[in-house]
């Protein structure tokens, strides 16, 4: 009995630590007062102020479109890479392929950002929206690969063999059998690549140009000046948006676990 009390207390403490600061931030965004320690009553004025902040809105547009595009490239590449890792067995160059594929997972962001920038400079590409999208697609691809790889490993390869045995070409077997089975994970991978791109600050700072300042960059330049209710409001919106995407992704993967049980 006491073990259960201890366990629940630990859980409560842990979640309070994880979600407390976020909850306070959210609450503050509805605070009429500018001071974090004074509750000046409920207000949505900071949100209405945002609507008139042209630069914030522009940054949001850039971030959302960069996230949408880069996640598309990352998911496509990640799907192909995961397919190679899950289905090609031991091919020559596999360890180099896998090793460099997963490098961004452990690489400090400043190093990755700097390296990508140097590539764009060496290729003499003007920095801006395009380089931002490419950089984010590079950075989020490994996350997409991890996710789709996991789904492919769960997907019984004998199903593909059965399709081939019944006369399907490899491409048809993939489209008719494998893809429908891993579809929820592919969509999840897209959504997660999307949120990672949306949230990224460090890599964007290195690789974007003056015309394409992202939302996190805009937030950052305001944060450096201290806590402000406007930032609280935009942060809350961003948190809410990501929470929505996460919920969608979680529901999708859960659906897969239930429906794919027989596979």
């Amino acid at each position: 009995m006491s073990a259960r009390v201890l366990r629940n207390a630990t859980l409560a403490l842990g979640f309070a630590f994880l979600y407390g600061p976020i909850a306070i931030l959210t609450a503050m965004s509805f605070n009429a007062s500018r001071l974090v320690t004074v509750w000046g009553g409920f207000s949505t004025k900071w949100y209405s102020a945002l609507v008139h902040d042209e630069r914030m809105l522009q940054a949001a547009t850039i971030s959302l479109s960069a996230a949408a595009l880069s996640a598309l490239i990352a998911t496509f590449n990640g799907l192909l890479a995961a397919l190679a890792l899950a289905r090609f067995g031991a091919f020559r160059g596999r360890s180099l392929f896998a090793g460099s594929l997963y490098a961004p997972l452990v690489l400090p962001e400043v190093v990755f950002g700097l390296g990508l920038l140097l590539v764009f400079v060496a290729l003499d590409v003007e920095r801006g929206f395009v380089t931002l999208v490419l950089a984010h697609a590079a950075f989020t691809m490994c996350f997409a690969t991890v996710m789709i790889h996991a789904a492919l490993k769960d997907c019984d390869p004998t199903l593909e063999e059965a399709a081939a045995d019944l006369g399907a070409t490899p491409l048809r077997a993939f489209i008719l059998v494998t893809l429908p089975l891993i579809a929820p994970s592919v969509v999840s991978a897209y959504l997660l690549a999307f949120t990672l791109s949306l949230d990224d600050f460090v890599i964007a700072s290195f690789t974007t140009g003056p015309g394409a300042t992202t939302l996190p960059m805009r937030i950052y330049s305001q944060v450096r000046l201290g806590v402000s209710p406007e930032v609280n409001a935009i942060s809350t919106l961003l948190l809410g948006f990501v929470a929505l995407i996460l919920t969608a992704s979680a529901l999708l993967t859960r659906g897969r676990a239930k429906g794919g049980g027989a596979g």
């Binding site: 842990g14 979600y19 931030l25 974090v36 942060s235 948190l239």
Partner: peptide, 30 residues
């Protein structure tokens, strides 16, 4: 799932949230 979910939310915002807590005139000191 809930314990890991914050990872997917903005790093910047999560760090920012602590400024309001830790400042001299912040919530903890207050």
């Amino acid at each position: 799932g809930f314990a890991v979910a914050p990872f997917w939310t903005s790093f910047l915002i999560r760090v920012y949230a602590w400024i309001a807590l830790l400042k001299d005139e912040g919530i903890i000191n207050h």
